[in-house]
Amino acid sequence: MKVKAKDLLLDGILRQNPVLKLVLGTCPTLALTTAAMNGVGMGLAVTFVLICSNVIISALRNIIPSKVRIPAYILIIATFVTILRMVLNKFLPSIATALGSYLPLIVVNCLILGRAEAFASKNPVLDSAVDGLGMGLGFMLSLTLMGAFREILGTGCIFGVELWSFKIEFFTHQAGALFTFAIFIAVFVGISNLISSMRAKKMIKEYSDKNNEVKEEIA
């Protein structure tokens, strides 16, 4: 069975969105969505680690014995996170400070470990890389959208640029994070249900049309 790269990408970004559908990596989602920029930074960081670890784990999938796979994954992921931390500290210290302790905590982010376990350990290198990219982009997209939502309502800014002075501080608090998360999941599930039901209707219609044609032909 050959999976297309486009399907893999779309899976990560939309159909299997790590935050809104798989509900992975909730800890940074709740903590870092106070601003849209945090979402972009965290998303890029996770994407980098995810692609690298997916590639390496996928390449080593036949070498790593299944008994010790989790420690091996953790070792690999931790290495990449450390490298990422050092790079960010050197070249982008402002983002490194904004992400704070959530940057080293990427090591235990269940999104990365989950993809390593569920996908990279069973699929070829290229597919794993695409999966990592898709999942990372999906993570970044949902975090950025949630961050923008909370930033606009909570502080009246977007990406640090002030739009208006009206602010509902509720959204900058933890309760606001949970509330926003819930709303986003609800909207996401609502839209995806709508799309799938529309698709189902379309399929039924096509099927019945075909049936009618056949019937007409028989008649």
């Binding site: 070498i63 014995p65 070792l75 290495t79 050092m86 500290n89 050197k90």
Partner: peptide, 30 residues
Amino acid sequence: ETTLRCVTVLTVIAVICGVLLAVLNPLLYV
């Protein structure tokens, strides 16, 4: 053999990771 293999693989990965970080550390030192 499998136990031995587990230990070996883990050690090798750990050593490679360690070496990689040791090389990068002075390069990225702030």
